[in-house]
C-alpha cells in the first residue's frame, strides 16, 4: 500500500506482471516514469482498455494491474 521512502510517496502497482513502485498518481505520468513516455504502446488497467487520450485523467490506485503492450510478431 502507500508507503514513504526517503520522504517520497511511492505506490505499488503491478506492471506487466511485475511489482513496481511509482510516484505517479495518473497513468500518463506512470508511463513516463517507467520509461515509456515516448513509446508507442497500448494500455489496459485492471483488464480494461485505457485509450491514450484518457491516460492523463486515469488515476492509479495501489495494487492496480497495468498492462503495457506493443507490436509483436503474430500468426
Amino acid at each position: 500500500m502507500q508507503q514513504v521512502t526517503w520522504g517520497i510517496w511511492f505506490m505499488k502497482i503491478e506492471v506487466n506482471g511485475e511489482q513496481q513502485a511509482v510516484t505517479a498518481t495518473h497513468l500518463h505520468e506512470a508511463l513516463a516514469e517507467l520509461g515509456w513516455g515516448e513509446a508507442r504502446v497500448a494500455t489496459a488497467l485492471n483488464g480494461s482498455f485505457v485509450p491514450a487520450a484518457t491516460r492523463g485523467a486515469t488515476q492509479l490506485s495501489p495494487g492496480d494491474r497495468l498492462e503495457v503492450l506493443t507490436a509483436m510478431q503474430g500468426g
Binding site: A39, R40, A42, A71, M72
Partner: peptide, 16 residues
C-alpha cells in the same frame, strides 16, 4: 500481415 500485441520488453518499436 497478421500481427499481435504483447507486453513491451523493448523490441516492439522496431517491429512496428
Amino acid at each position: 500481415a497478421t500481427v499481435s500485441l504483447r507486453r513491451e520488453r523493448g523490441a516492439g518499436q522496431a517491429f512496428w
